[in-house]
Simulated scan of single mutants.
Amino acid sequence: MKSIKRNFIRTILSRLKANFLSIYNSRGSTHEIALGAAIGAFWGVFPTFGLSTVLSLLLYKIFRFNLPAALSAAFISNPLTSPFLLMISYHVGTLFIPTDFKFEYETWYQNISKIGYVMFIGATIVSAMTALLIYFIVKYAVENRRKKNLA
């Protein structure tokens, strides 16, 4: 059982590394790459449950960002991070909408009618903050890499 968990974690980490490298090596302006990564990260953190690719494709038609960066960054949400992101979203939501309901990861979806609005507000804030942070990190990293490659 431990080897299965280790292999699962290695697989997730190798995917994250590959996604990061694909963002890092993308073509386009640093703004397009960073915007794509930010939009992908937004949908990855927001509880879209597998619709991040479709939503990124729809937004691509409007904003013209780096699509491979968006699709790669959407994998910020995965089986290891999803429980954490859902709990953080709920707790941030309770800062704006007080509730006496206790969040439990195992049963949250059964109580979505009681916590849905709280989670929506929290997820919007957490996703936006994550996207903003990702934008500046990716823009800085890509600019630095390009400067080093030119030197």
Score class of each variant (00 low, 15 high):
Met1Asp: 02
Met1Gln: 08
Ile4Trp: 06
Arg15Pro: 03
Arg15Ile: 09
Lys17Val: 10
Lys17Trp: 14
Ala18Thr: 09
Phe20Gln: 00
Leu21His: 00
Leu21Phe: 01
Asn25Cys: 08
Arg27Leu: 07
Thr30Tyr: 06
His31Leu: 12
Glu32Tyr: 04
Leu35Ile: 02
Gly36Asn: 08
Gly36Val: 04
Gly36Pro: 07
Ala37Gln: 06
Ala38Trp: 11
Ile39Asp: 03
Gly40Trp: 07
Gly40Arg: 05
Ala41Met: 09
Phe42Leu: 06
Phe42Val: 06
Pro47Gly: 11
Thr48Gln: 01
Thr48Gly: 01
Val54Ala: 14
Ser56Cys: 11
Leu57Gly: 04
Leu58Gly: 00
Leu59Cys: 08
Ile62Pro: 07
Ile62Asn: 04
Phe63Arg: 09
Arg64Trp: 03
Arg64Lys: 15
Phe65Leu: 02
Leu67Val: 04
Ala69Arg: 07
Ala70Gly: 03
Ala70Thr: 05
Ser72Met: 12
Ser72Phe: 05
Phe75Gln: 05
Asn78Asp: 02
Thr81Pro: 09
Ser82Met: 07
Ser82Ile: 13
Phe84Glu: 10
Leu85Tyr: 05
Leu86Asp: 03
Met87Cys: 05
Ile88Lys: 10
Tyr90Ser: 04
His91Gln: 14
Ile97His: 10
Pro98Arg: 14
Thr99Tyr: 04
Thr99Lys: 07
Thr99Leu: 08
Lys102Ala: 05
Phe103Lys: 02
Glu104Tyr: 05
Tyr105Arg: 03
Tyr105Asn: 09
Glu106Trp: 02
Thr107Ile: 12
Lys114Ile: 01
Ile115Glu: 00
Ile115Tyr: 02
Ile125Asn: 10
Thr130Asn: 11
Ala131Glu: 09
Leu132Ile: 15
Leu132Ala: 15
Tyr135Val: 14
Tyr135Gln: 13
Lys139Met: 10
Lys139Leu: 08
Asn144Val: 08
Asn144Cys: 09
Arg146His: 06
Leu150Trp: 07
Ala151Leu: 11
Ala151Pro: 00
